[in-house]
Design a protein around this nucleic acid. Structure first.
Lengths: 200, 200
DNA sequence: CCTCATAAATGAGTACATTCATAAAAAACG
DNA sequence: CGTTTTTTATGAATGTACTCATTTATGAGG
């Protein structure tokens, strides 16, 4: 048995390199053509690996999309958390979080909708799925914190209201009604709904 | 050119019979095994039609599920609309609508989730999809009416709040978190969220 | 260095939804 | 009726995500 401390070993290095190539290839191809227009074979070819190898690194095409997109959402949410700190009102704070997520989600609308679809309907046990859920949970947690700032809501009610806001954002982003809308229009639509929810 | 008035003609009769056989077969098989465990071939065989014929009557397997389920949801909503009329409070009225839908949706949980998934993410141009959207739009309209009963909300705000309630119901039903829950637990969860939304 | 055990990679194979060229049936027309 | 046109039915063929028996690479022990 070898000590796992110092060197990662060639095996580990190879694995990491392959994962990097896969992530890079999938990100490029998905971003360029949309998840439905890209075959797993094309990704495998672009990453220079065998057909089946791909599925050792992501158990499904959906997982591959989550793997690629999670990073982008994490960045968007980081920005949103910062912006929410100096918002004047709870509504503005919520929207400071919503805006970067909307922007991220709609960079490629088809991918954005598929990402949401898989988060809700995919297998929550899959590794990248789990990570995706953790990432959006951060937004929910931030909503709770925002809603409690002025002390008018109990912790329980704040949690429930936060879930409602998340649901509103989810459905607004997923709905085909907004396929042709601008990001701004989607944000405005969400803001209007949240405004009514917050009106105490 | 023949007058289309009097007799339906053998062609029309055959078509109707086939559609009936397809609907019956799909309803049975989906209900028994769940949509993912049934192949379109099995449905075609059960309906005693050719492989390709199925897709003349429903453009996709998803459309077939919508075709079969729309009827059930329409019935559930009809019951809900009646019950909502003699509810004491807006919250009770909303829940009178929610309960039959939850019951219908969760008769077979996998089918229920797939139904919601296809309604939101499927092609809204497909005929049965369109009908499904019209059916759930009734629920949304009913929410608007309920919310305006006491006159404390403008029409616009009522519409926005109704959409939020719909979003809450959708996400609560779709979420894997409720895979193991009872119908009652799901209803309670939705009720809690709606209660917070309605608290002015 | 050699041998064996274990992990990783591979691509031919599978399953299944959907399509499409062709055939059969029905209607229209004389 | 027979002919032509239009609609409907069919199942073999297709495309694609995913699996799995087999091969190959890596590391451990001697």
């Amino acid at each position: 048995m070898k000590v796992p401390s110092s060197s990662p070993g060639r095996r580990e290095r190879n694995k990491q390199q392959k994962l990097d190539r896969i992530t890079e290839a999938a990100d490029q191809l998905f971003g360029r053509f949309g998840v439905d227009e890209v075959t797993t074979q094309q990704i495998a070819d672009a990453a220079d690996i065998g057909t089946g190898t791909l599925f050792l690194y992501a158990r499904s095409k959906a997982e591959l999309l989550l793997l690629v997109q999670n990073t982008h959402y994490a960045e968007a949410i980081e920005a949103g958390l910062l912006a929410a700190d100096d918002a004047a009102s709870p509504l503005d704070a919520v929207m400071a979080l919503v805006e970067p997520v909307v922007e991220c989600n709609r960079r490629q609308i088809e991918n954005g909708r598929t990402y949401l679809r898989e988060l809700v309907f995919g297998d929550p046990e899959e590794p990248h799925h789990r990570i995706g859920l953790e990432i959006i949970q951060q937004v929910d947690d931030a909503y709770v914190e925002i809603l409690q700032r002025d002390g008018r809501l109990s912790a329980g009610d704040a949690a429930l209201l936060a879930r409602a806001i998340s649901a509103v954002m989810f459905v607004s982003l997923a709905s085909p009604a907004h396929l042709q809308s601008t990001d701004q229009e989607v944000c405005d639509d969400i803001r209007n709904q949240v405004r009514v929810l917050l009106r105490p």
